[in-house]
Design a binder for these strands. Structure first.
Length: 727
DNA sequence: CTACCGGATTTTTTT
DNA sequence: AATCCGGTAG
């Protein structure tokens, strides 16, 4: 059964699969839908299937596998290679395959071959320019709101004209004008935003049958992961690429659809069977990841969604420890508690890499980070954008972008006076005016030898800048790392950074890291180019920055956690308005999607799961009283362990704030069997006690029948009863 | 033109 | 809290 280029025996690919898994793997031709519940071995199935297809009915390069993030793509490629399939299978994200195809077929797509990908910061700049052009005030037209409307329109595959046609209100008609200007500016600058990458390819495939056929001959088997999170353009692409052979395999889980806010259309996966009546549908409902208790808690939560295709996950795994909820007075205690528990676990042999802390919003990471620092625990935060978003990095990249794509006025504007070289706002405005009057690009005006004469005083500065750019031009063909380091020193960026010796930051070191990255790219991609490197950099995601080899605790958003798993998971901030998130009282949130998000987080856990909430939390600099998340009440109450980390909540609104919290360091006398008194629950007996670093957990059985766990350091309402006091 | 200050405002999530 | 913006002094 082996074929050239594939050093594998198809039978070994099937050896240890369950029946449904085997069905999915061996269904090579025709449409296939794999409805894969959380932790049901989906990754295993799709890697095996990709390998199986490449070993039986196709060659590796004829398979195109599309994932959601680069990290997922890299992992899948690695696993497939480990199965013995040659490395020339295409495994990448939707956005990168679109960029690549548009680059190759740019002439058919009516695009310049050197187009640049505009990230969110670039988009914001373009919107500002568009507002300026339309003579509108930024105050009335918040950039982010405009951007989200434009993105919505693009996701619905609406051109500015179509948008204008269905704009009945004055606001929407103005928005249509802004959208028009936005598109015009992008076109002038040869820029494509993220939405364009998908949209343009969908449009191109739609109208170019010859290309469509060629691509389908090349990629005979298409595999799309996380199909529940695809949008309309992605749906079109998927179908246009599989029109004739219909070898489309999609996998996903409607319960894990968490990207509706950016245009994902859950009906894509729900209507797959209608789209393809002859499709094989495989349901994977056995969970191999989590303990029974974790799974039952997660299942209970998700069952509260009304809009849902019924599905029952089950597992043969152990019962496991109880899922815990922790009630904390504030976010500091919450963070310290988690850090303390992790420290204890690590002391007992748990690897830090086994632990992840998840939150709804990035802002919550700070408190956790501080606590982990205090506890001396190594951690990594999933925030790749942050690195590429740093000023020094963006500046340097802007230079390269101008070299590759001189029309990119957004980048040109950024670097024209960076480092400061005496070309200020007024001069740039004059250059703009010149460009507009002569109908030329900003870059042309800057480079034009006659320009300096028309500028007076600052003319020579512009001429110097033009000379600088000219001298850098040859670097377009240099390897990325070389181009970076040359630009860094020759533009004076390095010098300017050396001056500003900031206390904590080390911008030069960041740039060095960037150059190292680029060198790695140059070596890995023999056919690479500066253009290619820039493209790759534009498409990195937060999650891509995670390094599995560091062995550190991972901090990440619930969105970023999708597709990952950890033995120990903490989800923080289970508070009404935070999870489920609500921006303000007027804007209702999609509560079902919020619930799915929580479900995704919970099902990441293999062995231990802890959900925490804080009664006070600081948001926007203000400390607010919170309400516990309604989601907590949707968990199976009797199966959970409820932990109370409350300080004494001194009756009557006010709260005692006792930093440090611990009321005593010695609870040596508190042992299983000893009696205690609680102000509300009365007399109880200690069932078990657990001593961690800085925290002593005591499970107490009260005479009233309640059982609850307390953290003694915080449990002011608990008092020790001498044996003779027990009545 | 640059540098700095103070006020206002806040995207939640991301390719 | 953190950032971004606009205004002003040098």
């Amino acid at each position: 059964m082996s074929r050239p280029g594939c050093d594998i025996d198809a039978r070994t690919l099937l050896a240890d699969l369950t029946e449904p898994q085997r069905q999915a793997v061996t269904h090579t031709d025709g449409p296939l839908l794999v409805l894969a519940g959380a932790g049901s071995g989906k990754t295993r199935v799709i890697t095996r299937r990709a390998a199986y297809v490449a070993a039986t009915v196709a060659r590796p390069y004829q398979v195109l596998a599309i994932t959601f993030t680069n990290k997922a793509a890299n992992e899948m490629r690695e696993r497939i290679v480990r199965l013995g399939v040659g490395p020339d299978m295409t495994v990448c994200t939707f956005h990168s395959i679109c960029a690549r195809l548009l680059r190759i077929h740019h002439d058919r797509a009516d695009l310049p071959g050197n187009f640049t990908i505009f990230d969110q910061a670039d988009q914001r700049a373009v919107v500002k320019q568009a507002l300026h052009r339309c003579e509108l005030d930024k105050r009335n037209w918040p950039v982010w709101r405009v951007l989200s409307r434009i993105s919505q329109a693009k996701n619905a595959m609406q051109t500015p004209e179509e948008f204008a046609q269905q704009a009945h209100y004055w606001q929407d008609r103005t928005l249509a004008r802004i959208y028009t200007a936005y598109e015009q500016i992008l076109a002038e600058q040869a820029g494509l935003d993220f939405d364009d990458l998908l949209l343009r390819l969908a449009v191109l495939l739609d109208r170019d049958q010859e290309l469509r056929d060629r691509l389908e001959d090349r990629y005979r088997y298409l595999l799309i992961d996380e199909y529940q999170d695809t949008n309309d353009a992605q749906y079109r692409i998927a179908h246009l690429l599989t029109q004739r052979r219909r070898n489309l395999c999609v996998t996903g889980d409607p319960d894990q659809s968490i990207y509706a806010w950016r245009g994902a259309n859950i009906t894509n996966i729900l209507r797959f069977e209608k789209d393809h009546p002859d499709a094989l549908v495989v349901r994977l409902e056995q969970n191999y990841r989590s303990t029974k208790r974790i799974l039952s808690a997660a299942s209970s939560l998700i069952s509260f969604n009304i809009n849902r295709k019924e599905k029952t996950l089950w597992t043969e795994n152990d019962e496991g420890r109880s899922v815990r909820t922790v009630d904390c007075p504030d976010a500091t205690v919450e963070a310290n508690l988690i850090a303390g528990e992790i420290a204890t676990a690590v002391a007992n042999g748990r690897e830090p890499r086994d632990v992840a802390v998840c939150y709804r919003i990035n802002a919550l990471s700070l408190e956790i980070e501080l606590a982990l620092q205090r506890a001396g625990i190594a951690y990594q935060v999933a925030r790749g954008q942050e690195f590429y978003g740093r000023k020094e990095i963006k500046d340097l990249i802007a230079y390269l972008r101008v070299l590759v794509n001189p029309a990119d006025a957004t980048s040109l504007r950024r670097i024209i006076n960076t480092p400061a070289r005496g070309i200020g706002k007024t001069t740039v405005a004059k250059l703009d005016a010149l460009a507009e009057s002569s109908n030329a690009a900003l870059h042309d005006v800057v480079m034009n030898p006659t320009t300096p004469k028309e500028l007076g005083r600052s003319g020579s500065k512009v001429a110097d800048f033009a000379d600088l750019l000219r001298s850098l031009t040859p670097l377009v063909d240099a390897p990325a790392a070389k181009a970076l380091s040359e630009v860094f020193s020759r533009t004076g960026l390095r010098a300017s950074l050396l001056d500003h010796q900031v206390v904590d930051a080390d911008p030069c070191e960041n740039v060095e890291n960037l150059i190292v990255e680029a060198r790695r790219y140059d070596q890995a991609e023999p056919d690479g180019s500066l253009l290619g490197w820039l493209e790759q950099v534009s498409l990195v995601s937060d999650i891509d920055s995670l390094d599995d080899t560091t062995g550190a605790v991972t901090l990440l958003t619930l969105h970023a956690a999708k597709g990952l798993e950890f033995p120990v998971i903490y989800i923080v901030g289970l508070e009404d308005g935070l999870l489920p998130f609500r921006r303000d009282e007027e804007t209702p949130s999609d509560e079902e999607e919020e619930r799915r998000l929580c479900f995704v987080g919970m099902t990441r856990a293999k062995e231990e799961l802890t959900l925490t909430h804080a009664r006070f939390r600081i948001r926007h600099g203000r400390e607010l009283r919170t309400m516990r998340s309604p989601f907590l009440d949707e968990l199976p109450r009797e199966e959970l362990e409820w932990i109370n980390a409350q300080e004494d909540d001194a009756a009557g609104g006010g709260r005692s704030r006792r930093q440090g919290g611990a009321r005593s360091t010695d609870f040596a006398r508190w042992r299983p069997g000893t009696h205690v008194h609680h102000d509300e629950h009365g007399i109880g007996k200690i069932v078990s006690i657990y001593r961690g670093s800085g925290q002593t957990h005591a499970a107490i059985q009260f005479e009233s029948g309640d059982q609850q766990t307390f953290i003694l350091e915080y449990a002011d309402k608990l008092t020790y009863l001498e044996p003779d006091e027990v009545g």
